[in-house]
Amino acid sequence: MGWKTSRETSIIFLPIKTLINFYNIKYIRGDIVLQEEQRVNIIRVLDEAVKAIKDGNIVLLKDLSNQTIHDASTVQDQYSITIAIIIYSLSKIHERENHYGQFKGWRTFCYDCVRGLELAKIKLEKFDIKGFDKEIKNYLNTLKKLDTKLKNYIQDVFERAKLNKASRIHEHGVSIGRTAELLGVSRYELMDYIGKTFISDVKDNLTIDPIKRMKMTREIFK
């Protein structure tokens, strides 16, 4: 499915709030909450993502992004969601390296990408959740420093990655409203995106025969 051009160019940043049950919280630093299971998983994903970028393994990058979607759908922690978006965006950006590589600042961007992920991973390994949070923010802020043209392209990729990940979370059974809330996208945007996927064609969606529903509606309007 082709991507649409976004009219909105705001950079992604997700609020650091979770709905995690308190009995399960392992690390709390101020507002920042991360469960041990997610911490270990994010370390693994970041580690493999760095290797995948260095090897130019785009398929693995996409796969890693999908792996974090399970946590994003169930635990709904903001870090799993953010990491899923970042890694998916990077897979898309590196897929078009021939195009983006022409722009000023591309090499710096590539270096900052790998370095940013490595630093974030180190912080997590040291149980420094606040430091990890800061690294993720810094990482997203590096985009602002890019050459205008490259920045616009990359911001657009991030925006579309956000919608792609949102549609995946919705596909896992989370409503459009809840998903939009989690990813900070509007319901208009999300419905527009989801409408162009195959989610509505899943056989298990059918609860009532459409003819029966239509006949019921006729009765309502009688």
Partner: peptide
């Protein structure tokens, strides 16, 4: 309606 996000399948469209 379908491509703008209403949850209706191809089969339902045909049937309706």
């Amino acid at each position: 309606l379908k491509i703008r996000g209403c949850s209706i399948s191809n089969e339902e469209v045909e049937s309706l």
